[in-house]
Design a binder for these strands. Structure first.
Lengths: 247, 247
DNA sequence: ATGCAGAAATTGGTTGGACCATTGAACCAC
DNA sequence: GTGGTTCAATGGTCCAACCAATTTCTGCAT
């Protein structure tokens, strides 16, 4: 097992050790064609091969862990959580005080911006295959809506993701997914509003119609309407919450 | 100097040490009301006060450094680079293969989305003071444009930043600033196009006019036009680059 | 053979101590 | 004062253990 490691992990040379470690590791991952879920060499092996201390390896891996690129499991090993490449750029964002309602509204404004643009780009670029996929997700969502008599956040999310993917720009899905994970407790059962997102239901099909008709401006407009309904629901929920606090 | 440190840095307790260290440090920063640029206790002090090894403290600080929250200067100390609070949320984004031209265009699509929304929100929310500030930046930019006979990226950037700030949502400035830093080598001298961004000049004032008139849809429309001209310039630059590669 | 409990090896997490490289301030010679 | 020197403080690296969780192996009972 170590034989494969030996060839592509030459010792490093200069200062800025941990950065050099990460560079070496990135090119190693590339040469070995490792993908998400796969295990990378142990800290001790890396330290030995790169001729640096295990502490230095740990600091480097800590950085990658903080960036969500790897996951460490004590007793098991360190595993890739995302695709890494030597030329990737990092853009860590910090939402100060994002836990409260105001923070949620702020992220929703970002989502509105991205959602509208993604829908517009999707209307321009989506091919027949992508449009078919979006319609499939839309059908599933609509059936779930009629069967269970309400919005299903799971199917709803799948529909939106298919739009992001068809936009031709992976950054849309990446950013919105990150926000979605951060606030999924809110998206799921937001503020105790019953039938949350009910009002947004019809706009899913109007967005799809604009995409299928390759009408970017229309898609942008309908997407903005959709997010506006979600914002209204949230505000309503916040008002209810305040009300229930009073009693 | 250590007397102030003693009171608000009690020892921590359980496993997940480095997380606990960061939590303790965050509440410490809050209690001491430390802001960006200020120096926080040395690693040795922290290790002693928190009753953990200095290595553990280092791993914790490494995480914050990777998130851009602190900056470490050897021989000097560790300094806050941004406001930190105990309840902040992190959203690290990784742009795979973002170094090339395609990556730049992808980030520009994100910027178009955010720019349009920020302008629209600004038109809704900006008060007299904010509008005056934006106009001031616009005047400076226009004067620089006529004096030096071309776009000045510095003043241009200041104008846009004032719009982001007046949007009432700090996330806009945060995200776009992060992208701006990543690609500032491109924004500055992009692909050797002379008079880059020249075509975008008039839209700065049309955007401002819409903001001043509290016309969100107009502001959104003009912002989209502005980014479109930038995209065209970039495409033209890419074509020139390919051409010059040929010879 | 099979299955399962316990031992052993593996691996990340933590500790303590040591030394190096850089920084910045105090100090001294001029 | 000016300019260089010295020296303490601080982050960066290294080493050698040990701890804790996990995985793998071993061997016994069935």
């Amino acid at each position: 097992m170590n034989s494969g490691v030996t060839d592509s992990l030459p010792p490093i040379q200069t200062t800025a050790r941990d950065d050099a470690v990460l560079k070496a590791l990135a090119s190693f991952v590339r040469q070995e064609a490792l993908g998400p879920g796969e295990k990378l060499p142990t800290e001790r092996i890396l330290a030995e091969r790169l001729k640096v201390s295990r502490n230095t390896v740990r600091e480097a891996l800590t950085r990658w862990e903080g960036l969500g690129l790897v996951e460490r499991r004590q007793g098991s090993g360190t595993y890739l959580k995302a695709a890494v490449s030597p030329d990737m750029l990092h853009m860590p964002l910090t939402l100060a005080g994002g836990n409260d309602f105001a923070g949620l509204m702020r992220t929703l404004e970002i989502r509105r911006a991205l959602e509208a643009e993604a829908a517009a780009l999707c209307a321009i670029r989506a091919g027949k295959a992508e449009i078919a996929e979006i319609e499939r997700k839309l059908d599933i969502m609509e059936e779930a809506f009629h069967t269970r008599a309400g919005m299903s956040s799971e199917e709803d999310w799948e529909f939106h993701q298919s739009v992001y993917r068809a936009s031709g720009n992976p950054l849309f899905e990446q950013i919105i997914s990150a926000m979605h994970e951060l606030f999924h407790r809110f998206w799921e059962h937001p503020l105790g509003v019953r039938d949350f997102g009910h009002a947004s239901f019809p706009y899913h099909r109007t967005i799809f119609d604009c995409i299928a008709a390759h009408d970017p401006d229309g898609a942008r407009r309908e997407a903005l309407k959709l997010i506006a309904t979600v914002e209204n629901d949230l505000k309503r929920g916040a008002a209810n919450l305040k009300l229930s606090d009073r009693k």
